[in-house]
Design a protein around this nucleic acid. Structure first.
Lengths: 146, 146
DNA sequence: GTTGCAATTGATAATGAGAATCATTATAGT
DNA sequence: ACTATAATGATTCTCATTATCAATTGCAAC
């Protein structure tokens, strides 16, 4: 259900941008929809086997990024990870494993998010900067690395 | 003064790790000490001209990272920026320009930092994760891009 | 259902950030 | 001053990612 709704939302966005939704791209969206955090092209490729060649994964992620369907996440040297954009999944933050680099999404409850936004707004006022987004990253050891 | 103290602190740390402090490396530390935020190897190289070749910059930054003298910062595809480690500069956060990618350091006052730490601790408890570090990034447009 | 256009493909070559190489040089300890 | 070995600097290599190109395909219009 949520998955099908996801595909419909993505279809609509891509159509608005006059971008085609091919089978390979649909497969990519499904894989990102099932992921528990940002995934690199290599992660996605190993998960999907030969369904979508690596070159198509890179290219489609780039097209999706331009269309605002995915967001890049940078936490490892030389590797970019992608996740579905927040308008599709909701605002969230990241846990980053300091050992292996895996990134996990976390949603925090409204009370904490409100507090965090207040902090961000106050910082913005202090340095005359209008925040358009914010990201809280918490570094530690993931379950596999503990 | 602060600069000289910085060099002394770095010297001590490198000596502990049996790493040599060459003139090129001293120049790099001085440049990082003057920087207002994380800098890439290319940034540092263009700033330093021929004083330190690009290959030496990459290599020294890597050595410094292993020794805990600098920390990497990832906010742009395919580019790593480095800044002095927090034990040298103090805990701080980053403003990232969504247009040009420049990263600026910001320190926030103790009251806000305390609030932020409480949020991080509570999130960590919620997801059974012991935070070792946290980073708040605020995205917007830098003064040049406004 | 058919057609046309241009987006997209997939394998491969090219690119750029960063790592490795090697003969020579320089640091730091004695 | 001597010595061991880390570090150098220019160049080559590696890897994640982008560009290329002839062939294929998605999708809107008819």
């Amino acid at each position: 259900m949520a998955q099908t709704n996801l595909e419909r939302q993505v279809e609509t966005r891509l159509r608005e941008h006059e971008i085609r939704l091919t089978e390979g791209r649909r497969t990519l969206i499904q894989a990102l929809g099932k992921a528990d955090g940002p995934k690199s092209a290599a992660d996605l490729h190993s998960r999907l086997g030969d369904q979508v060649p690596l070159s198509s994964i890179y290219r489609s992620l780039s097209v999706f990024e331009d269309a605002g369907v995915v967001s890049p996440h940078y936490s490892t040297k030389g590797v970019t990870r992608y996740e579905l954009a927040e308008w599709l999944t909701g605002h969230h933050h990241h846990l980053v494993c300091v050992n292996c680099g895996v990134v996990e999404d976390i949603e925090i409850d409204d009370r904490l998010e409100t507090q965090l936004e207040a902090i961000v707004e106050e910082i913005g006022r202090d340095v005359s900067f209008a925040p358009v987004d914010h990201a809280l990253e918490i570094d530690g050891n993931c379950r596999q690395c503990q």
